[in-house]
Nucleic acid binder design. Structure first.
Lengths: 299, 299
DNA sequence: GCTAGTGCATTAGAAAAACTAATGCAAAGG
DNA sequence: CCTTTGCATTAGTTTTTCTAATGCACTAGC
């Protein structure tokens, strides 16, 4: 077996037990090994890492800073392996679902619909992971993902949830300021094609403006700024639908443009779905058939 | 070594690689082993678990449901071990921060303040984990956590961020309906002491009402329902502050009561903090000194 | 139908890892 | 000074991991 980034579990277990007891002898007793074995495993691990994990004293050990840093992740990893291994004997699987989606979707679309999910699946334990500035990172234990992107970047299994249009939005109190475009404060969102420049392009006009545009890394920032009356933000159907219906946002200009990106549902293949995943996917499919603009565009 | 709940990592690695490739031969090539070794490891693991993880076909493997259920947790565990092992050699730690907090805090407090965080730390990669119906589960790789709870349930290291009052809120359009208390629709949130019953208790009145109360599992549902004009929800300072300032919510009754729970900041000890963690903690401490009601109550 | 290729399963033996018992050393306590 | 405690090291034993070879079943091509 080639040397890799994963030390043997045997060494890691010896380290974790020793860290708990701060004693090779007591750890060995717990693991039903000899003190010598535990000592050697920890020594091997330290050599592998080229770091000392314990300070050896006459009759006691102290964790080094490196040792203390290492410990929590290892404990969680052991818990994960242990609990999923025990899942073969236990029956309490299937309730937990980890869903990954971007924070804007979570805040502006999902949050206001959770009641319907709850009414339908009161047993569901939902964990939402919302990476903000690194949305490409797929949480390895996320069972389902709602991803915003272009069709060609998606796998064949991805289910398309929407066709988006994009357009500027602002708070009602900003309507007058929006009519003075040159002086209005503009917000854009990075990492999407639905920018001010491309919006003007679809109007057959070049986009030239002397004032700067505030470029944000997530639509949460841009749209919240608009909601707060700080300016005009680019937005698209799914995120803006509820806010427009409520009158919290208005569209100061009539034009809207088809967007390259849309929302997709990425789910495990059918034979790998837990009850929680299936329930969520079923609920999601019903939700997109409601008028919420995860079902069609308004262009 | 005694038989335990943790199978050898060797077996788990063989399983994970095989599940990825759906081929013992290709997995063996990746692991620099022979097909025979991988086949035996997976066989050993299946025997250990008393379950089949793959369906063997003539020239291909298919994951069983058991295999597919096992896989995500193992992947995460490997990631945890791998990343914490690499922390000894790598230098690219420090940008990523995993923050755990409840979704209501994320939606009603944090989201509208992210711009200030971004302006201050544009390099920060923030991942927010927001468990909804299992908030006690601490993500072990979460570097920091903002927890809603009682002081006595907190460790000594927890930093108290707020002192909360709780009170009913509703949308402005619901003001008239709120004056007819017996027929108004009420929302409560489970798992907190800030209930309708305890609110009446602080008014020195027994709470007796014939109509039912909608009990929700997260303040996101209850408060969003109130925002939508569906009724009156219990809320507390930190969640309600922005919404009250904006006029999206009003307080239909004047009385507010001190709440047992408040928000706490749980962070790693100083010597285990990455640059990202320190930056976030510093920003957080400045934010709580602003008038946002993560700084004091209004009772 | 036959042959060649593919890929998993099994076997027997080799190599490596894990483990033990014994011993050495240092520090602490009486 | 002597005894106890506990980690480190050594040499040998045991167990696990791994390999090469072979068998079996299926598929594709002729």
């Amino acid at each position: 077996m080639s040397k890799s980034s994963l030390p043997p579990l045997t060494w890691l277990r010896a380290f974790e037990a020793t860290a708990r007891h701060l004693s090779f002898t007591r750890a060995a007793s717990e693991l039903n090994l000899t003190q010598s074995a535990v000592s050697q495993h920890v020594r091997s691990l330290e050599a592998f890492l080229a770091r000392d994990l314990f300070v050896r004293k006459a009759r006691a050990l102290e964790l080094t800073e490196d040792g203390a840093n290492y410990l929590p992740s290892l404990r969680e990893a052991f818990d994960l392996i242990s609990s999923s291994t025990q899942a073969f004997t236990g029956t309490d699987r299937g309730r937990n679902l980890i869903l990954q989606c971007n924070m804007a979707f979570s805040v502006f679309w999902l949050a206001s619909r959770l009641q319907r999910l709850y009414e339908r699946c009161p047993w569901l334990v939902l964990n939402i992971v919302t990476p903000i500035w690194d949305p490409e990172r797929h949480a390895a234990n996320a069972a389902a993902e709602i991803r915003f992107g272009r069709l060609e970047d998606m796998s064949d299994a991805a289910v398309r949830l929407s066709r988006e249009s994009f357009f500027p939005v602002c708070a009602p109190c900003y309507r007058d300021a929006a009519s003075e475009f040159e002086t209005a404060t503009l917000f854009d969102c990075a990492g999407t094609t639905g920018t001010w420049a491309s919006w003007f392009k679809t109007k057959g006009k070049p986009f030239s403006r002397t004032g700067e545009i505030n470029l944000t890394s997530t639509y949460v920032i841009a749209i919240t700024a608009a909601l707060n009356g700080a300016g005009i933000s680019m937005a698209h159907d799914t995120l803006a639908f509820d806010l427009l219906e409520k009158g919290d946002l208005i569209r100061p200009y009539g034009h809207s443009a088809p967007m390259t990106e849309s929302y997709f549902l990425l789910s495990p293949s059918a034979h790998a779905q837990t009850p929680a995943t299936r329930a969520f996917l079923n609920w999601m499919q019903e939700e997109v058939s409601l008028p919420s603009d995860l079902s069609g565009s308004r262009s």
